[in-house]
């Protein structure tokens, strides 16, 4: 609308800029002493005006209504609200594991031979059963009913037979991630398979596990943070407790 960035100051103060304009102005502001001074002056001029205004008696019960709403919304916030978001984590996995199969979810099947498909299906069916067993065990061990929000097949890296499923469960006010895998390579002593939940391009550890002789394993993880996860991935890590992945991605899927 205006030519000079300095001309945006009033609209900045009145919160009338678009996100892009606002960011542009803030960048300009950091470089323009004159605008900084003007903004400070305007803020000083306007800052306390309301203290000179006539006081109005708040309506009865407002405090209760406002605070109730604030706190009840907070509880809703921690409850999962899941919306599909575009997958943004490719950059992350790309950097980490160039040359891996990046297909997500069902796409993986198109790359597989039909014979592999049958095997894969069998495997997935059996892991589904295992998950259901694990699920009912979980239900027994803790109060609250869990219900699956989303179940997804994990896509394997090229050249491996690894397979698995990831299930997001809703349990009361929190979420759990259940991961079940098979045909994983045997681990060296000290190594673990690490599960990551990925938001955007940021992975966060979500439980680690080791495998049995046949290469099966899994883990249940309680998700404490309210985030909109984009993907789940499993890497092989040289030790437990890594906060960022060192190893390559073995299995992955979009959420």
């Amino acid at each position: 609308m205006n030519d000079k960035p300095c001309d945006h100051i009033l609209d900045y103060i009145n919160d009338q800029l678009s996100d892009i304009e606002r960011k542009q102005f803030e960048k300009h502001l950091s470089e323009c002493p004159r605008c900084q001074e003007e903004l400070k002056e305007m803020e000083d001029l306007m800052g306390d005006l309301p203290t000179y205004m006539e006081q109005t008696e708040p309506p009865a019960g407002m405090k209760q209504r406002v605070l109730d709403e604030v706190f009840s919304n907070e509880e809703e916030d921690t409850a999962p609200v899941r919306t599909k978001r575009p997958v943004k984590w490719k950059a992350w996995s790309g950097v980490l594991a160039a040359g891996l199969l990046l297909s997500i979810g069902m796409n993986v099947y198109t790359g597989l031979e039909v014979s592999d498909l049958a095997t894969e299906n069998e495997q997935l069916e059996s892991s589904l059963t295992e998950i259901q067993t694990a699920l009912s065990e979980l239900e027994d061990s803790e109060s609250g009913t869990a219900s699956p929000l989303q179940q997804t097949e994990l896509a394997s890296a090229e050249g491996t037979n690894a397979a698995g499923t990831a299930t997001l469960l809703n349990r009361e006010t929190r979420q759990e991630l259940l991961v079940q895998t098979q045909n994983l390579e045997n681990l060296e002593p000290g190594e673990v398979y690490q599960v990551w939940l990925i938001e955007g391009e940021t992975p966060e550890p979500a439980g680690a596990f080791t495998t049995n002789d046949t290469g099966s394993g899994g883990v249940a993880f309680t998700i404490n943070e309210e985030k909109s996860w984009d993907a789940v991935a499993i890497t092989k890590e040289p030790q437990t407790g890594n906060q960022t992945p060192q190893g390559e991605i073995i299995l992955q899927a979009g959420l």
């Binding site: 309301p50 109005t56 708040p58 604030v70």
Partner: peptide, 24 residues
Amino acid sequence: YEKLLYSFAYRMMKDSQAAEEVMQ
């Protein structure tokens, strides 16, 4: 701050319900 903020919101909105929405 209830009274200060509410009074201000009320001056801005000229309506008690809208002012309460602002407080919220």
